[in-house]
Amino acid sequence: MNLEEYVQSVSLHSLQLGIVIGTLGVVFLANAVYAAFLLGFVFICIALIYLLFNADFLAAAQVLIYVGAINVLILFAIMLVNKKQEGSSGTPNNPTVGAALICSSLFFLLSSTIFTTSWPVSSTKALEQNLEIIGTHLFSDFLLGFEVLSVVLLISLIGAIVIARKEELPSPENEKMLKLHLPNPLKTSESKEF
């Protein structure tokens, strides 16, 4: 094993260990803010694993979408709800027996599937310019889907702006007063001299 393979192996194993520790922290920490920060750490570790495997587009998409959007959204939701947490001292939650049974059976099922499957190893060389190939396919073969997605995102942005605008809609009482040309009792009227 030469130095380059050793460095890649150590980097891969340390990132895998970081993912395992981070996910355990996400599951077992009682403080939701700390769990959300650890989730961001896990997403960054996954992006670094993509970089180790020369998948730079997936690494950039992982950082932009999951760390930059999803994790920030989770943090904003946690902080905006501002629910008083019980046991926020950092003690782990007690998992129920059913959840522990389901998780352990799923772990053993996936582990047995991974170790009993014969994984074929490809001898083809990795593509050197995968970003250029993705861009070419995106703007030629998948142009219609790309444009439909941009229109859907534009519509959702306009919908979010409309929902976020808080215009005061006229109440039914105010509409009746306006139709009858009566003065609005809610407005302060100037004192009139007799």
Rank of each mutant, 00 (worst) to 15 (best):
I74E: 00
Y50H: 15
S118V: 11
N130A: 12
L138I: 02
I19L: 13
G18P: 00
P185K: 03
Q8I: 10
L58S: 05
L143A: 09
I163T: 13
L80Y: 10
E175F: 06
T113N: 13
I78T: 02
F194G: 07
M177V: 01
L51I: 08
F37L: 14
S112F: 13
S111L: 15
K84W: 08
E132Q: 10
P95Q: 06
I21K: 10
L180H: 05
K84R: 14
Q8L: 12
K84S: 07
G159T: 14
V67Q: 04
P95A: 08
L131C: 07
I78N: 01
S122N: 07
Q62C: 03
A60W: 01
A36R: 02
L58K: 00
V148M: 10
E5F: 05
D141H: 14
N82R: 08
I114F: 06
I163G: 02
K166V: 02
T188H: 15
V152A: 15
C45M: 01
L149E: 09
P120W: 02
T124L: 15
L64R: 09
N94Y: 13
F142D: 07
L149P: 02
E175W: 06
L64V: 01
L109I: 12
N93K: 14
F28I: 02
I155Q: 10
S105G: 06
E4Q: 13
V63W: 00
T116F: 07
T96Q: 13
T117Y: 14
G98N: 09
S118I: 13
L73K: 10
L106H: 04
S123I: 10
N71Q: 12
T113P: 01
A55F: 09
G25Y: 00
V42L: 02
A126P: 05
G25V: 00
G25F: 00
L12T: 14
K176P: 00
